[in-house]
Simulated assay, not measured.
Amino acid sequence: MRESAVQRHDRLLTLVREQGTARVTELADRLGVSPVTVRRDVETLTRKGLVDRAHGSVSWPRPRTAGAAGVGTAPVFGLLAPSATYYFADVIHGAHEAAARAGARLILRISDYRPEEDRARAEGLLAAGAEGLLIAPGWRGRADQAEHGDWIGELPVPAVLLERSVDPGSPLAGLDRVCSDHAHGVLLALRHLTGQGHAAPLLVARADSPTALAVRAGYDQALRALGLERPHPVIDAPADRDPAGFERGVQSLWTAVTSGRATAALVHNDVDAIQLVQRLAELGVRVPGDLAVVAYDDEVAALADTPLTAVAPPKREVGRLAAELLLERWGRSVRGRPADRAAGGAEPAARRHLALLPRLRVRASCGAAAPELLEEGRAQG
Rank of each mutant, 00 (worst) to 15 (best):
L374M: 08
R359N: 03
R351K: 08
C366T: 15
R352V: 14
A349D: 04
S365E: 04
A368E: 09
R337C: 07
R361N: 01
H353T: 11
D340V: 01
L360V: 02
R337K: 11
G345M: 10
L354I: 14
A350R: 15
S365M: 09
G336H: 02
A339T: 14
D340P: 05
L374Y: 00
R363F: 05
H353K: 08
L356T: 10
A368D: 09
A350T: 13
L360R: 00
A368Y: 01
L360G: 09
R351T: 15
A368H: 07
R335D: 08
G336F: 03
R363Q: 14
L373R: 15
H353C: 03
L357I: 03
L373K: 12
P338H: 07
R361E: 06
R352Y: 05
R352G: 07
A370I: 04
R335N: 09
A369V: 12
R361S: 04
A370P: 04
R361T: 05
V362D: 06
H353M: 00
A368P: 10
L354V: 15
E372Q: 14
P371L: 11
G336D: 09
C366P: 04
L374C: 07
V362H: 10
R351A: 15
L356K: 09
P371Q: 10
P371R: 07
D340C: 08
R351H: 15
G367N: 06
A369K: 03
L374W: 02
G336Q: 02
G336I: 06
A364K: 06
R352N: 00
G344F: 13
R352Q: 12
A364C: 01
A355M: 14
L373I: 13
R335W: 06
A339N: 04
G336S: 09
A368N: 10
L373E: 15
R341Q: 14
P338G: 05
C366K: 02
R335M: 13
L360N: 02
A364D: 12
P338Y: 07
A339C: 10
G367F: 06
R337F: 07
G367H: 13
A355R: 01
E347D: 14
L360S: 02
A342Q: 11
E347M: 12
A370M: 01
L360H: 00
G344D: 14
A349P: 03
P338V: 01
R337L: 09
E347P: 06
P348L: 10
V362E: 10
S365H: 07
A346Q: 13
R335V: 02
R363N: 09
